[in-house]
């Protein structure tokens, strides 16, 4: 009897599937997930996990959390990050210390894999939610993430 049992089960599962999609069809007018992009350019907010580009947040004192450890540079599979660093005398403690000069990020090469962000031990870099990254000259895609004159936030290294 499993022959007819199979037919019954087959029809039942097909109908279950159709009822699921049918419900979606009926509610689609209210819940369309489409973003009509150029129209809602002003109001469009990307969702939390969207990967726009890698940025380094700075606080109000122009301080970031990057220690210059280069872990992100090593983690990046295609060499999109270059860190130019230097040993300088820390004005507070008077010791010689590794500090970043420039955290260079090549957006044009980045595959948005997120490995650099996972590798960073101090959470100095994060994803930005911007989505309009097109420019007229590719040299604009090479960005320096730390702002000029910025310095390491105190206490990050402990």
């Amino acid at each position: 009897m499993s022959y007819f049992g199979d037919i019954y089960k087959g029809i039942k599962t097909l109908l279950t599937g159709m009822s699921v999609t049918g419900k979606y069809f009926l509610t689609s007018r209210k819940g369309a997930i489409t973003q009509q992009y150029p129209d809602n350019r002003e109001t469009l907010k990307m969702f939390e996990r969207f990967r726009g580009e890698v940025v380094m947040p700075h606080d109000e004192n122009n301080e970031h959390r990057c220690t210059g450890c280069q872990k992100c540079e090593l983690a990046c599979p295609n060499g999109s990050i270059e860190i130019i660093w230097d040993r300088q005398i820390d004005p507070e403690s008077g010791k010689k210390k590794k500090m970043i000069d420039k955290h260079i990020y090549h957006l044009g090469m980045c595959t948005m894999c997120g490995l650099c962000i996972e590798a960073c031990p101090t959470d100095a870099i994060v994803w930005a939610q911007n989505f309009e990254n097109s420019v007229y000259d590719r040299s604009y895609l090479t960005k320096v993430l730390n702002q000029p004159g910025s310095k390491l936030k105190a206490g990050v290294e402990e």
Binding site: T21, Y24, F25, T27, S28, R29, A32, I33, T34, Q36
Partner: peptide, 13 residues
């Protein structure tokens, strides 16, 4: 259009 509605999209508009 129907495909779009089944997938909670808007379709060509």
């Amino acid at each position: 259009k129907v495909a779009a509605w089944f997938q909670l999209r808007l379709g060509p508009n």
